[in-house]
Amino acid sequence: MDKLQKGIEEMQNHNYEEAAKWFTEAIDENPNEPVGYINFGNLLLHMNDFERAQRFFNRAIELDEEAATAYYGLGNVYYEQEKYTKAQEQFILAVHHGLDEADVHFMLGMTYVHQEYPKLALPYLLRAAELAEDDVDIQFQYGLCLAQNGQIDEAEKTMNHVLQLEEEHSDAHYNLGVVALHKEDAHKALEHFDRALEINSEHMLASHAKAQVEQALNE
């Protein structure tokens, strides 16, 4: 097993010091290979050492301007610091340089979500959802974005898919309750709000919505 692989394994096992040792050796042996810098950048990102992570990703890009995963890593550095416009630029570069994985499309979509541009987020979240049909977080955010774009039927279908993946998803139930209200089915909405509260008794949105619906039904 090569040193980079050993470093990645140690990183996955949260042995960050050991991982750093392997990555350092890999870089020392191949100082002109971007992969070592990218892996070290990912490690530093895990440790929230954003400044150094940025330096390593930039070094990888200096060595290879086509290194798509370096742009992706840099995008994550900015994203974690809530610098969404800068993150967006890097994720776009990652896609431009050939990275076509669910994660990069998802992160790109989320940069638009955080800037309250749901229309711009939608195509990226759709692509992520297509590439990762079984990823609960991606499917949920895609469903949410559909709803924000007024695509209620599609949002309902996606939230039901989320529940197939994870039955105890209180937020999916809450959102299906909201969809039911859109369709003027108060009783179905109540069922979903109740289910959301069964799963998470502190779900404030579901609690508030339930109280409002019950009040409306009693009037």
Rank of each mutant, 00 (worst) to 15 (best):
L63D: 07
G7C: 03
Q212W: 11
V136Q: 04
N160V: 01
H114R: 04
E219R: 09
A172K: 06
E156L: 15
L165A: 11
N15R: 11
F56E: 04
I27H: 03
N218H: 11
A147P: 01
K157T: 06
D103F: 07
D64E: 00
A216H: 06
M11H: 08
A26C: 05
E65N: 09
Y79A: 01
V178Y: 09
Q212C: 15
R52H: 08
T24F: 13
Y117I: 13
A70P: 10
E167Y: 07
E168Y: 02
C145Y: 12
K183I: 03
K183S: 02
L146V: 07
I27R: 05
V162N: 03
F57V: 02
H173M: 05
Y142H: 13
E10K: 11
P31I: 09
E184L: 03
H161G: 06
A180L: 08
A60Q: 00
L74W: 00
V104T: 05
L44C: 05
V213E: 15
H203C: 15
K86W: 09
F57G: 07
A68E: 03
S201G: 14
N15H: 14
L63F: 00
D49H: 02
G41L: 03
G73T: 03
A20C: 13
Y37L: 01
V113N: 09
E66S: 11
M1G: 09
E154F: 14
L125I: 06
D28K: 13
H114V: 01
Q141A: 14
L44Y: 06
K210A: 09
A216I: 10
A60Y: 00
A216S: 11
G75L: 06
D185Y: 13
V213R: 11
S170C: 14
E154H: 15
Q54E: 00
L108G: 08
I152M: 07
H105R: 13
N218G: 08
Q148S: 13
A20E: 13
N15D: 06
E198I: 03
E154Y: 15
E101M: 10
E191V: 04
N39Y: 15
E82C: 08
S170K: 04
H114M: 12
N48M: 03
Q88D: 04
L197W: 14
D135W: 03
L217S: 14
K21E: 00
K119G: 14
E101W: 06
H161L: 11
